[in-house]
Every structure is written in C-alpha cells, then in structure tokens.
Design a binder for these strands. Structure first.
Lengths: 151, 151
DNA sequence: GAGTATTTGTACGTATGTATC
DNA sequence: GGATACATACGTACAAATACT
C-alpha cells in the first residue's frame, strides 16, 4: 500500500553529532588545518560508542569538510585556492563524484566532486571541484583553459 | 623525516568488494532500478562480515551508483534525465557536496553533488549535479535558465 | 635512530529498531 | 501479521601510520 510517511523522526545520534561538529567547524572552533578532537575524546564527550563517533566524522568527510589519515588526528580541510577556468563557447559541463579507483589514482580526497568540461570537438577536461570556479566570460571565446588564480 | 611511502598495499577487503560490485553494475549485471543482492547474500558470497559488506555498498552509495532505503533492497540508481542549463555571460559556477542537512531538506540522494551558478548580480541558482548539464551557448547571453531537456 | 604512545583503519560479532514487501 | 532488508548502536581486537620522547 502507498502509505505516505508523515512521521517526524528524531535524527540518528551520529547525525546529531555530525551536525554539532559541523556547526563548530563553521563557527571556527577548529580552524582549517588544525586537528579535531580525537575519536576517543569524542566518544567521551558525547558518551557514545566508537562506531557512532566514526559514523559522525564520516559524514563530515563525505561532505569534504574533514580529512583524516591513519595515525594522525583528523583535521578540518583547508579550502584550496580556486583557479578560474574559462568555459569555451559551445562546451558542456557536468559534475559527478569520482569512483574510489579514480580517487586513489588521482589522489583525490573524499567529498570532492569532479567537474568535466567537454568542448565542441569532444575533448574532455577534468577538474577537482574544490579547486576551480568556472567562468562564462563576458568577452571572447576559447577552450576551457585555466587563466588566473583567485582567492 | 619525509619518508615517502613506496609500499604497495593490498586494498582493503571492502574496497575489493566495492570494486567488484561496481564492475558488475557497469557491466549491467544489475540493471538500473533493479535490486542488488541483499547484504546477507553478499556476506555469504564473499565470506565476510556484515560490516565489511555494508562498507563496500556504502562506497557505491557515496559514488552515487547505488541507492538504498530501509526495508527495501538496494538498487542501482537510475540515471536521471539531464536538463540543459544555459550559463549566462559573466556568471560563475562552482560545485560542492551538499551537507547532510541540505540532503534531507531538499531530499537529495547520497553521492549527488550540487552545482551553484552565480550570475553577475550575485543571484545564485542551485542544481542537482546529476540532473543537469551546463551549456555555454554559442549565441546569445542570459541568466542561467533551464531551456530544454535532453536524453 | 629507536622505542613507545597515540590515532585512525580494518574487520569481526551482536542486538535491536524500523520500513518495506 | 510475518518475513525480509536495511539502519542504528553497542562491543572487541588487531593493523598500520603517525607523533612524540
């Protein structure tokens, strides 16, 4: 039967923790490049299991907010400088997540989408989404080319 | 010291399983919209724990390849029809992952990035990355507007 | 450089909740 | 209602990379 779900649910604990940590990050509690509290510490702070804390942090990694390596504390990701890419006339742009294979091969961090620009001749250029800003120029045309850096 | 890591590692089991399932999906073993094998079934097939299987499937969800709801079997995501969006002169485009909050509010599935187009006046339009294709037109200018549908 | 502690990664197990079929 | 399937949450143990002494 098509019983529409009207119920309002209490978000899962790990969602709540992720939301709280995200707010702290946005607020600047853990500045970019600086370590976050360790998982063990978060377990104690919120009185939850390691699993739950890890799922919370995992959400932030998926969003590209946090990066973590084995052995080192998780850190708030520094937002890379964005290059400006000019999109050529008649070219098409799509955006998608990389496969894990691509992530490892191209050393892409989690939570970073790919931007694919295909020009009229069919040539495809791929960019890391957090490193570029695509500009449709006022003036002249040209293939998608990196021309300048911006803050 | 900067000791460069040269070692080649055996990928984690859940990565291998994810790779295998991804290959099957690409090959068309589980057509779009069709159910994937259940987690319990995958446990038996690969002789691994539920945790490991879930992490594998989780990778595919993160890549936007698979969708899953509670109670129903996971399915290979159907690729939505992409609308063509025309990008206006002087507008800028960026791409990022939505926050979980945004995902729930806007009912966005996992693994789907957002495309943000900001026009010269500063107005921002947001699109689901898997639903659009951004076109830089040959001819006229205009704000980012959805004009037509394509396969 | 060596040794140790810390921290995250991987993998297992179990139980229960909840939506779907 | 019952069976199935995924979601949440607890626990444990060990591996591997890093950081510190």
């Amino acid at each position: 039967m098509s019983r529409v779900n009207v119920q309002r649910h209490v978000p899962a604990v790990y969602h709540q923790i992720a939301d709280f940590l995200r707010a702290e990050i946005v607020r600047g509690t853990y500045p970019a490049g600086q370590p976050m509290p360790s998982e063990r510490e978060l377990c104690e702070r919120y009185t939850v299991s390691l699993t739950t804390v890890r799922r919370a942090v995992n959400i932030l990694r998926e969003e590209g907010l946090v990066t973590s390596r084995r052995g080192a504390p998780s850190t708030v990701r520094e937002r890379p400088i964005r290059s400006t890419v000019v999109m050529g006339r008649g070219s098409k742009l799509t955006c998608r997540m990389p496969t894990t294979t691509e992530r490892f091969a191209m050393n892409i961090e989690r939570g970073v989408p790919l931007v694919e620009v295909r020009d009229k001749s069919g040539r495809v250029e791929v960019f890391l989404a957090d490193r570029v800003e695509i500009l449709n120029p006022e003036g002249l045309a040209g293939a998608a080319t990196r021309i300048m850096d911006v803050a």
